[in-house]
Amino acid sequence: MRRLRITPLRLASALAAASLVGAGVGYAATLNLTSEHLGAASQTLTKGTCNLGSSSATEAWVDQSAPTQSNGGSLVTQTQNNRNQYSFLRFGLSGCSVPSTGGADTATLSLQVTSTSKTNHTISAFPVYSSWSASSLTWTSAQSLSVGSTATDTFSSSLGTKTLTVTSDVDAAIKSGTFWGWELVDTNGGGSNTTTIDSPSLSVSYEK
């Protein structure tokens, strides 16, 4: 019988073979780290902008001193004992073509104060949650509207362009599919003041 002689070359070959076997066994042992149930998905958002001008706006104001009168088509606020006037403003968001699964990243309402008797009053924009029509809204019917108790933003009654951040309102409106805009109220409370507002526009950056 021929004796197998151990040479350095044979020994090195044996070590290499053993290494491969060991690595293979080690790799097989790590298979048990996988989960029994796995799933993955992703969603890519599309960004866009939408600018709605006066032609997309619906405007009305109501007068406490004429509680059954409708005043569609313009915006006026007034604070005066028993002669308060509130304005209502909304936009048709359908022109932006954002589905209810989308949302507003930012939304800015721009207004122009064209006349005022006092420049230091604060006018607040409260979100409206129930429907109204410019042709039929009156002081009396406005009392039954659902209006938020916290102003989304405010602006001063001084002349000029005003910008209000209304992101949360527009985002909620996109998701609900209905948008009833804002009630504008002179919330200064001290002294009488009448302010007229014009040229409303809404700029929306959205995702869908």
Partner: peptide, 21 residues
């Protein structure tokens, strides 16, 4: 671990988010 890796069918999930002002 030797059991088949399965999915419960999540290949098309979608999310919506809300924002503050």
């Amino acid at each position: 671990g030797n059991a088949a890796v399965t999915s419960c069918g999540v290949s098309s999930l979608a999310a919506t988010r809300t924002v503050d002002n």
